[in-house]
Nucleic acid binder design. Structure first.
Lengths: 191, 191, 191, 191
DNA sequence: TATGAATGAGGGTTCATTCAT
DNA sequence: GATGAATGAACCCTCATTCAT
């Protein structure tokens, strides 16, 4: 019960959970399957997590923390807005395409029995770098004076949708497509 | 002689299922709860649906059919592209905001054990009016020469995201916000 | 509820029940299947029988009554013992082979939840003609002085076993086999 | 590390199933009752058997294997035919009387939804010792030249019937009755 | 009377969680 | 700590029986 040191097992459990979610949704996350996929015993999972709910909630927190970092990868504080915007946008899109299981999880999580909107404030959450960036862009007169929430919803919504379609094979995103998408993104929010 | 099969019950089952999904996700759809919510006996559900899977799959088909109609509400064939675009975009947004349970279902459905991508072709599906509209816009030189998939992903993704945030209370969409959103949408795809 | 006149439906129910029992045992006798097989509505069965138990019990009584008659078919009171024995033995064997569903029912009935040994006296039952016949044979010094129960068990047990094997195709009973079986039967009980 | 899989539990399940079958037929075999009777949890049964059908089918196989052994108990290869015949016959009768639950099971099994005649060959089955013995007796000119199937049906059918009547209390088999029965058996098949 | 849709208690099975090893 | 057998509450589904037509 005392949180043990073995981070290897911990990560194996997270990875196993995400893999199962991607394959069959939340309904596919069964504790014995998680254990098997993680290569450990069923009971062992309960050494690392009090119960299934704790596992899921903790997984959410871990993802948020990681995601926050991912968005800012390569970011330099003195970067221009345009450079920063392009970087964050790229980071998000790459992340979205490269880690479908993470977003499969998030999508199922919001709207599952485990997600409690009242205890979650997404403004402060992993998207905050985007919020801050756009606020900066607006103050510099580069971004249209539109409520930031709308701007962010516009940007993330598009990328999320592209990610889903990409995963389903309905849409291939080559280098050219990547540029098209960026062009659309920028056109939609520029002043 | 006996009671006739009742379409009211059928719809009650659909409504009950959607309501439960919105409340607690797919995991919340328990057949006895569906029955209770629909105001009928548990066994009665099995008169109308072979089993839970059949209920979920059928619900998907019904939603797709209805959605198709919704997008085209008020549409006149001789309408200009701009008028048509605005209408379809509006229809989608209103539908997305007004029927959160429908989209909660769809989001959970794709990615659940019930969804089989191999038997589903979404191009032909309920979004086809948007595809056709944008193809028309491109041929008239009004819309940027970007792959239609990308355009549609951009438009629907944004609306979906707005819908989610709206439901969670993170974003209020008043008349002004509505116009902002439309402006972004149009800016992102115009030539 | 008042026993109605329609013997056609009544017999259809009996026949349907037996057919289902032969196909899948007692577990296969489901009231809706009985109704469908009998060509009537589910509820109609309950006009003729209070419930399933009543149907099964009544079916048992009907079979016993019919069986009694079958064994004595063609019997003349002044027939010699040997002629009578051969006749009854033949009747039983033919009945056993020709009506497998009846015996499938009986076999499942004894040993089912429906059969209550305490309220059933089989001495008085449908086998009584055989008992009486053998008692007569013993008193005439033709049959070995062995408890009649044993004699009857010997005769009926053999025929029942032959019937089962015949139904399963493990044994074909042509005219010669018939005579063999009779020879064995008679050899086993003769003085 | 964890508890090892327990053959005691396996046998407890078998015994519990047979007990329930004897009491109320196949219809009385409810998985929760089996578990309770076996003194284990309901779910535990499903560790040892995939489902109810697997339990029943496996029980059949186990019984056949055991039965085969029982018939040959005490048998010596160089025994005379008469000694062997008497031994096997005795073994069968004792088994039939002593293990009514086994035969209650078999009787319900053939004729249930679980029994598939097409995948079962009873010649090779547990009765094979009797077949072989009688073939030997015929070749030695001791047994009447009658198809072996008929001979076996005669012998087993009688014993089965005696067993049933004995269980129902309609027939007591004391030492004398035992000899009567043997006399009949032998008389019926001797040359 | 006849029907078959409707019902819900009950039975089969799953799976989160516990516990003996 | 690690394991996986064991557990039973809870879920899906069936089917005997009822009842509106």
């Amino acid at each position: 019960m005392a949180r043990p040191r073995d981070d290897k097992k911990l990560n194996a459990i997270y990875r196993a959970s995400l893999k199962l979610i991607l394959k069959a949704g939340f309904g596919g996350v069964k504790m014995n399957l998680v254990a098997k996929e993680a290569g450990i015993g069923t009971g062992t999972v309960y050494i690392y997590f009090k119960n299934k709910e704790a596992l899921i909630r903790q997984l959410y927190r871990v993802i948020r923390r990681r995601s926050n970092v991912v968005l800012l990868t390569g970011h330099k504080p003195d970067e221009s807005f345009m450079a920063g915007f392009r970087r964050v946008w790229r980071n998000y899109l790459r992340y979205r395409l490269g880690r479908p299981e993470v977003f499969a999880f998030l999508e199922q999580y919001y709207g599952s029995q485990f997600f409690d909107p009242s205890t979650t404030d997404r403004r402060d959450a992993w998207l905050s770098p985007i919020f801050e960036l756009l606020d900066k862009g607006k103050s510099q007169g580069l971004v249209a004076p539109i409520p930031t929430e709308l701007l962010v919803a516009q940007l993330t919504g598009t990328i999320n949708e592209i990610g889903k379609w990409h995963l389903e094979g309905r849409l291939q995103l080559d280098e050219k497509g990547f540029e098209y998408a960026y062009k659309m993104a920028w056109s939609s929010i520029r002043r």
